[in-house]
Design a protein around this nucleic acid. Structure first.
Lengths: 344, 344
DNA sequence: CTGTTAGCGCGTTCAG
DNA sequence: CTGAACGCGCTAACAG
C-alpha cells in the first residue's frame, strides 16, 4: 500500500528473500512451495500491495483474457441487451469485453478490428456492417477466433449466432393478413444487411402465400434509424390507396413510423395497424402496446460468447455452426382487431 | 495474408533483409529510413499480413491505450447513454473501453477493479457502489488514474463528474408544491449512495421552504430498481391520507411506480401526479409523458473521459475537480395541472 | 522444495 | 542510415 508506482514480482521476491519464480509459483499455485516461504511471500505481496502485471503474462501465454465486441450502437436497447449477455457470459469465464460502436460504418469497423487484433484479443464478436466476408477473413487470418452475431455472412466459413428474421417477419405479416389486411407497407432496413433482407423476404413470402403477387408489395428500404422510419412512413401514407397496415423491420424504424403517424393524425390501430421486429425491453415501458417479434437478445449475446469461448478452448467441432434462435410474436394492441371489409 | 499464426517483427525483418529495429522505425516513423528499405519493409509487412503486437509495446511503454468503465448496469438507458459518451470520447483519442457491470455489488466492483489493474489499464471511470473511499484509493495506490462518475465520494481526493441531483430533485418537488400538492411521497434510492441521498435532500429542502416540517415527509428508500419502485408505490398508496403526488428518484423506480399505480387503478395525473429523475432517451418513446429531471448522460460520460485522459496527459492541475452538470426539468403531462383545493 | 536461465515481441539505446 | 544488444514483467524448463 506504500508505493505509488507498481511493485514488480522482483520487488516481492527481494522483500521475501526468494527468487521471482517462487513468487510466481505461489501466485499461480503451480509447483510446490513450502508453507513457510508461501507465508513469507504472501506477506510481502500484501505489504507492497503488489498487483501482478497481466500484460507480461499475456505476452508469454498468448492469451489476454479479453474479447472484443463490435456492434453498431449500444444505444439501441436491442444491442444493449446483447452486450449485457456478452459481458455476463464473458465475466463468468474470467474474460473481459472491449466495446466498439461502429454506427454501421465500414471504416470504423475496419479500424476497430485492427486495434483489437493489435491488442491481441483472444476472440472477436462481430456484427458485420456488410455481408462481405473480408472483415471476417481479416480476423481469421490472424488466427483469432471470431463469431458473427445477428447477421449472416454468406461467403465466409464462420460461426454465426442470430435470430430467425425470416420467420419472425413472416409470422408478423401473416398476422396482419389474417386480420384482413391486404395493403401492407414494409418499412425495411438497409439492403445488403442480412437481417433486413431476410425480413423483407419473410414479408414477401407471407404475401405470396395468400396469392398476392409482386404488384401488391409496398416495400421501402433504408437505414435502421428513427429518422428513416419517420420518412418511410410519411411516404407510405401518400400511396393511393393508402396502406391499412405497416410492418416495421426494427424498433427504431417503428418508433419513427409511429411518430409520423401521430404527426399525420393517423390513429393506431384504428386507422393503421402496426407490427414490428424487436420488442422493447420489458423494463422500459409501462404499457406495452406494440405487436412485435421479440428476439432473445440477451441469449443471443450469451450463446455467441459461449460459442466463442468454446472455440478458444478448442471445442465445438470443426464445422462452423449457424445457430438460429427463435423469435416470438407478441400480440398487443397496435395490430388491432380483424378489419371490417371495406373498399380494398 | 498467408500465415495462420501471427508474424512477428523478426519475420518481417528477415523477409525484408533488414534488422527488427529497422522495421520498428518504419512502423513508428521514428528515426531515418531510406526510401528503398522502407519500401522493402512495407512490402514484407503487406505480404505477411503483419500486425504489430501492442501487448509487447505496452509492456515497454507502460501505456495500454485502454480504460475501464465500471458502472452498475448498461441495461439502464441512462448508463447506456453514459457508456456511449465514454466510448466516443475514448475512441476519439485512440483509447478503448473495457465495460464492467457491477449490478451495485461491492464484490463485483472489487473483482473488476482488480482485474482492470492487472490488465494495466491507463485509467478507470468508476461509478462507486458505495460512498466509501477504499475502491478509489485502491486504484490510486497503483498509480492508476481514476475519475468518479455520477456519485460523490466524500472522503477521497478524486476527480468527480456528476449531475446536480440535489437541484434537480428540489426543482421537481417545487413544481409539485407550486401545483398545490402537500402530500408528496418520495420514492428514493438506496441509502449511502450519494445521488439517492442528494435527491432526498433536495426533496426535503423543497418541503422545508414552504414551511412543511419533518412530519410532512413521506420518504421511502430502496434500490434503484423497478421492483422496488413498484413496491414503494404500493406502500405509498396505503398511507392515510393518501399522497397526491409521487417523486421518483430514478427512471426504473418511476416505471415500477407507474405499474403499481396502473394495477391499483390510480390514474396519472388525474388521481396522482408523478415526477421523476432521469428522462428516457428521446428515441425510445413515441409520446413522452413523464415530467422529469433530465440528466446530460452522454455529456457526463464524455466529460469524465476527457478529464481522465487529460490527467493521463499530465494536465488538469493538481487539485481534484468536482464537475457538476446541470439537470433540466422537462414538464410533461404526468405532473398534471394545478390541484383543486380539497381535503388536505 | 527453490534458484537460475531464457524468451514472449517490441522499441530504444548505442555503435558503426 | 542501419544493426546489435538490452530490458519491460512474467513463467516454463531445467538444475540443484
Amino acid at each position: 500500500m506504500l508505493r505509488q508506482s507498481q511493485a514488480t514480482i522482483r520487488d516481492v521476491a527481494r522483500l521475501a528473500g526468494v527468487a521471482p519464480a517462487t513468487v510466481s509459483r505461489v501466485l499461480n499455485r503451480s509447483g510446490y512451495v513450502s508453507e513457510r516461504t508461501r507465508a513469507r511471500v504472501e506477506e510481502a505481496i500484501a505489504q507492497l500491495g503488489y498487483v501482478p502485471n497481466r500484460l507480461a503474462s499475456s505476452l508469454r501465454f498468448k492469451r489476454t483474457g479479453t474479447i472484443g465486441l463490435v456492434l453498431s450502437d449500444v444505444t439501441n436497447p436491442f444491442w444493449t441487451t446483447v452486450a449485457r449477455g456478452v459481458e455476463d457470459a464473458a465475466s463468468d469465464h474470467g474474460f473481459n469485453v472491449i466495446l466498439c460502436n461502429t454506427d454501421e460504418s465500414e471504416q470504423e469497423q475496419e479500424r476497430y478490428i485492427t486495434v483489437l487484433l493489435q491488442k491481441q484479443v483472444d476472440g472477436i464478436l462481430l456484427v458485420p456492417v456488410r455481408s462481405a466476408p473480408k472483415p471476417v477473413e481479416q480476423i481469421q487470418n490472424q488466427g483469432v477466433a471470431v463469431v458473427v452475431l445477428d447477421r449472416r455472412v454468406p461467403n465466409a466459413r464462420v460461426d454465426v449466432v442470430r435470430c430467425d428474421s425470416f420467420g419472425g417477419a413472416y409470422r408478423l405479416v401473416r398476422l396482419l393478413l389474417t386480420l384482413g389486411h391486404r395493403r401492407i407497407a414494409a418499412l425495411g432496413g438497409p439492403e445488403g444487411v442480412s437481417t433486413a433482407d431476410d425480413r423483407v423476404a419473410g414479408y414477401r413470402q407471407a404475401l405470396a402465400e395468400v396469392g398476392l403477387d409482386r404488384s401488391a408489395e409496398l416495400i421501402f428500404r433504408g437505414p435502421f434509424t428513427q429518422a428513416c422510419g419517420y420518412e418511410m412512413a410519411q411516404r407510405a401514407l401518400t400511396l393511393e390507396p393508402r396502406p391499412t397496415a405497416i410492418f416495421a423491420a426494427n424498433n427504431f424504424i417503428a418508433i419513427g413510423a409511429l411518430k409520423a403517424l401521430r404527426d399525420a393524425g393517423v390513429r393506431v390501430p384504428e386507422d393503421m395497424a402496426v407490427v414490428t421486429f424487436d420488442d422493447l425491453p420489458e423494463g422500459l415501458v409501462v404499457e406495452p402496446f406494440l405487436t412485435a417479434a421479440a428476439q432473445p437478445a440477451y441469449e443471443m449475446g450469451q450463446q455467441a460468447t459461449e460459442l466463442l469461448l468454446a472455440r478458444l478452448a478448442g471445442r465445438g467441432g470443426p464445422k462452423p455452426q449457424d445457430i438460429v434462435l427463435p423469435t416470438e410474436v407478441i400480440v398487443r394492441r397496435s395490430s388491432g382487431t380483424a378489419l371490417a371489409r371495406s373498399g380494398a
